[in-house]
Design a protein around this nucleic acid. Structure first.
Length: 180
DNA sequence: GGCAAGATCCTCT
DNA sequence: GAGGATCTTGCCA
């Protein structure tokens, strides 16, 4: 499966497809790369927990872009969180990147994070470790500075659980975690 | 125009 | 385990 085809179809399927794939950034000659192990699917106007629930705004417009559009938002005024729009364009569906395991650029991640442990085990931490911030909002992971790459390894098992940190629509098991 | 809440993380107790 | 940091958005007056 190619990267672009993995971004097609229902957001729930896209979220599953992203597990095991690699997310790579390369800024100022410093490359970092992780394998995605934890994601969450968010719908559009039919998902009350989604930022896109009330339609496009100045902040969330990237969610409504074509598949592969990067949606970066500030969480609690402190952290950056990265999503990948899943399309179809205009529906506001996206996959939140919640966690991964470092593959390359450990030293860079440790420097950005200011610590040696817990580099990429949360949405805000992963974005910080990869150097993702608001300036990358609206870029595309197929040809932009933040690049989604082919699968690092197969995913032996995927566990679906309720999403984390939200107060509505908790009944949807749209959080997907890779197990081995 | 003001206010409350939020897809989080870190530090301190 | 609890609380603070810090800013954008949506809702209501």
């Amino acid at each position: 499966m190619t990267v672009s085809t993995a971004l097609e179809g229902h957001v729930e399927k896209v979220a599953r497809s992203l597990l095991g794939m690699r997310l790579r950034t390369e800024f100022e000659g410093r490359a970092t790369e992780v394998m995605l192990t934890e994601v969450e699917a968010y719908g559009g106007s039919d998902d009350s927990a989604s930022h896109a629930y009330r339609g496009p705004t100045q902040r969330n417009r990237s969610m409504f872009g074509p598949p592969g559009t990067l949606y970066v938002y500030r969480s609690y005024g402190v952290h950056w969180c990265a999503n990948i729009a899943a399309g179809p364009e205009g529906r506001g569906r996206a996959v939140l990147i919640r966690g991964g395991v470092p593959l390359e650029g450990m030293a860079v991640m440790q420097q950005r994070r200011g610590r040696a442990d817990q580099l990429t085990d949360g949405p805000g931490k992963l974005a910080q470790a990869l150097g993702i911030n608001g300036s990358h909002d609206g870029t595309n992971v197929l040809d932009g500075p933040v690049r989604l790459l082919a699968r690092h390894q197969d995913t032996p098992g995927i566990v679906a659980t309720p999403r984390v940190g939200i107060s509505t629509a908790r009944d949807r098991p749209w959080r997907f975690v890779m197990v081995r």
